[in-house]
Every structure is written in C-alpha cells, then in structure tokens.
Nucleic acid binder design. Structure first.
Lengths: 130, 130
DNA sequence: ATATTCTATACTAATTTAGTAGGAATTACA
DNA sequence: TGTAATTCCTACTAAATTAGTATAGAATAT
C-alpha cells in the first residue's frame, strides 16, 4: 500500500477540518497558508467532497466542513476517497490487471496483506490523530 | 507498501527455486521459459544474489540455488532485497525525505502501518507458498 | 458590483517503472 | 582448445504515474 502525496495531504486536510469541527466553513487558503499550493489542495478537497466525506459552500465565507464527527471517520475511507488503488499490487482490487489470478502462487500473499492493511486503517479513526 | 513487478517476480523466482530445492543449479531460462524476459529476470536474480539470498554458478550447467531451507526465508527479506523502499510513504524509511517528522500529525499512522505490514511479511515464510 | 470561494478540465514537468540491449567473464564438455 | 551456456555489468529507453500548474467558469456574502 503506497500512499501518494494526495493521500497524505487529504489526511492533513481532514485533520485541519477535524480540529475546527463545529466552527463553520474553512477555506482551502486557510488550510494551506502560504506554504502550499492552493490549487492542488482544492483538487484533493474536490475528491473528498465527491466522496461525500466533506461538504462545500461556495463564495465569500465559503469553504469546507466535515459531515460527521471526527470519531466517525476511518483513515481508510479518507485515503480510499483520493487514492486510485490502495492494494499492494493492482491485481488485488483490479480484476483486469491479471488473468491468471486463480493459479497465481503469490496472489494469496498480496490479498492477505491488503486485508491486514485495510483492517488496521478501518479501525483507526480521524479523532485518533487530532 | 506498493509491490512493484520486481518484487512480484522475485517472489516467483524464489518459489521456483524452492520447489527445486536440493536439485542443483537452476538457470534463469528454465525459470522464465519462453513466456518472459530472461534479461529482466537476470537482473532480479542478481539483486537476490547480492543480498546473499541465493547463490550463483556461472557457465554451462550453472544457475542459481537457495542458500537455506525454504522454511527459513521470510517473504519480507525476499521483497526487501529487490524493492527500494517498502514503506507506505518514503519518510518512514528515508530520513532525508522529510524534515518535519517530529511534528507531523500523520507520520505515526504511516509508521504504525509499516510495522504491521513488515511483521506480517516477516512471519510469512517461503515454504508457506510452495 | 466585487471579492472570495469552490468547480471543472486540460496541460506539463519530473520521477519512477519496466523493461531492452550489448557485451564481457566464467565454466562444462566435446 | 573451441564452443555453447550461463551469469555479470552497465547503459539506455519507452511508457506510465505522480505531482503539480494554468485557465476559465459558477456561486455567494457583503
């Protein structure tokens, strides 16, 4: 399971929103400050929004807010919303990636590895890192 | 932890050698058959050899053999011999990849995730997939 | 009206991955 | 001693992925 910068920033964004839970909309530029690309973070926020993990409001005073309590978010669902394929190897989650899965000697390893990773991340909640 | 094709093929190579444990040297061309690039597999074998997981003999009748019993090899050591960085995110194993590790809110997640993955792969042995 | 904020899509540069290519060194065997 | 089979070494390359940048548009508070 390789975490890309999208996953990393998505989690940081959620941490920021989590810390400000209940305080209304938070804009991307407030989250990034001057130290990071607003444009890139916008794109990440859009993915989280599309996955219904956060909700948006446009315009002045707009921004993003969490849709549920920080203790209800698993780290898994956050990463899964922005990453293409969280599996250690594509074939685990993408049936088209390999046709010999049934006879593959190494496949069970990747599959089991993914299960362990996913379980850990499903049990870990956003509130645990606030 | 993303497994590249190098890791996948390395494990398949080791499985082949494991099945032929005690039968002398096995050449790359025997392992790959006609279905796969001998040249690429040679490179992977060279990495395993450099890591002392297998030993080589050149020339006619040459090839590779395991240096210990299949039950002594962990999947972790095999993958680690050929992959650059098995961690979910570079900073976990590469100190130069990030300077703010101490204050990073998400770092503990990646670190813990890696520990879980590594432990699983260390307990899983080559013999388990023969 | 205007400034601020998200939305959508297209583009690009850098990096990584997955090989390919060519030849040198070593060895068994005829 | 010659030859074929094998590993060893290094350089190269094409495709895919990643990490952003750029541009323009839509919605909203004031």
């Amino acid at each position: 399971m390789r975490i890309s910068s999208k996953g990393k920033y998505a989690l940081e964004l959620m941490v920021y929103l989590g810390r400000n839970y209940g305080k209304g909309s938070i804009s991307i530029s407030e989250i990034t400050g001057d130290s990071f690309s607003v444009k890139y973070m916008e794109k990440i926020a859009a993915l989280l929004n599309k996955a219904k993990l956060i909700k948006s409001e446009r315009g002045v005073e707009g921004g993003y807010t969490l849709v549920k309590d920080p203790k209800e978010y698993s780290i898994f669902e956050i990463l899964n919303a922005v990453e293409d394929n969280l599996a250690p190897i594509k074939c685990v989650l993408d049936d088209d990636a390999c046709k010999v899965k049934i006879t593959c000697k190494t496949y069970p390893i990747w599959d089991e590895l993914y299960e362990i990773e996913a379980e850990f991340l499903k049990n870990k909640k956003l509130i645990d890192i606030l």
